[in-house]
Design a protein around this nucleic acid. Structure first.
Lengths: 203, 203
DNA sequence: GAATTATTATACCGTTCGGTACATAATGTC
DNA sequence: GACATTATGTACCGAACGGTATAATAATTC
């Protein structure tokens, strides 16, 4: 072990708190003071542990995606015997719980951050990594749908990429709807309507 | 006419420019200096003409909705003889042109602003008026769909409110997708997929 | 043309911004 | 225990923030 005074706070817990502050306020509207207050540490500790505001945001965003976004993907393939439509529904219900929970800020940090993209707010680096995250998400979705098609759970004429892009659009829309104050039940109704419209065969 | 020196700038043009700055940067990431530079006026002129930053934003947002959002609604009812699916498509293509144009910032100011809702960024007043705008939009959409159903252009079992909420979700998603760098053609593909899924009768 | 009214430009207000210098305190290595 | 190393708390940096006081400049009313 290297020498030096031990860090007095849990870095992982601090990152969690920072993620929540960004989730609540967005990048631009979050000040370093907001962060140090929420984390209960001083500025030099924050800068020593996380670099600067932008780097902390990037780290928090990656944690958000790996901690909240990625685990939900499993619902698309498991449990094994479940019909595809039901698995997609379970996935989307997971997203609803994410964007409309009493335990966390309304909306999706990823969507919120994507909307902050542009001229001056978020750096080009962050914009690009947001795009990369969406591409990865889309790719994973296409992969699942492609496999389902090969297994006969989707018509052979179905286009996995089209379905994936469409589903992502609906999901992004759900996040905005949540921010707009829509209730959990209203969001579920939207998801059910979207899935019924897809008219995926039952087996 | 009241006495006093004449305003040296066109207030309407200035509001247009302000709207565009907010559209590009969002509320939080836009400074009053950004605004005065874009408008080519001094701070006292801005404050005299528009109140303060928040009031200017509110005015710009209302202009955005009435100038860009409202006119598109006509496509849902006209031209008279066109099938409903085609009218909905025309409406959504209009939205695509709005959120992905070379003449204006990518994305939708309304969606972007809704995402800035929350703890500290946007005031409670603005959040509420954003909600009111969405409700009005939704209501208008429901009204159109209800009329179409009565005319037999939708199954009698169709639920206008469900369809309206669903369509709005897709539209909001399109705005996020545009921010994510999706091309016009990709957005059109999403809209076409969504409309085909709806499987609205052709007449 | 004097009085009044509104807009302009400059310069400034206190506050907050992101970020850091510096001294002190605590840990490991030797 | 001396030393190197790392974290902490305080206090501060220049710059930018939203907003305004003040005085000069035009325009209208009478």
């Amino acid at each position: 072990m290297t020498a030096g005074r031990k860090r007095a706070f849990d870095k992982s817990e601090a990152l969690d708190k920072a993620m929540r502050v960004f989730w609540e306020n967005g990048y631009s509207a979050t000040s370093v003071n907001d962060l140090t207050e929420a984390l209960g540490i001083n500025k030099p500790s924050l800068y020593a542990a996380f670099g600067n505001k932008e780097q902390l945001f990037t780290t928090a965003l990656e944690r958000y995606m790996s901690h909240y976004g990625l685990p939900l993907m499993e619902r698309l393939t498991q449990p094994e015997g479940t019909p595809l439509a039901r698995r997609i529904r379970a996935y989307m219900l997971g997203i609803i719980n994410l964007v409309n929970s009493n335990e966390s800020p309304k909306g999706c940090l990823f969507v919120k951050s994507s909307c902050e993209t542009g001229a001056s707010a978020l750096s080009e680096d962050i914009s690009l990594s947001l795009q990369a995250m969406r591409q990865a998400n889309e790719k994973a979705l296409v992969k699942v749908l492609d496999r389902e098609r090969r297994r006969g759970h989707l018509p052979s004429t179905a286009k996995p990429r089209d379905i994936a892009e469409y589903l992502l659009s609906v999901l992004y829309g759900l996040s905005v709807m949540a921010k707009q104050g829509k209730s959990r039940n209203e969001l579920i109704r939207i998801v059910d309507f979207a899935i019924n419209s897809l008219s995926i065969p039952d087996d």
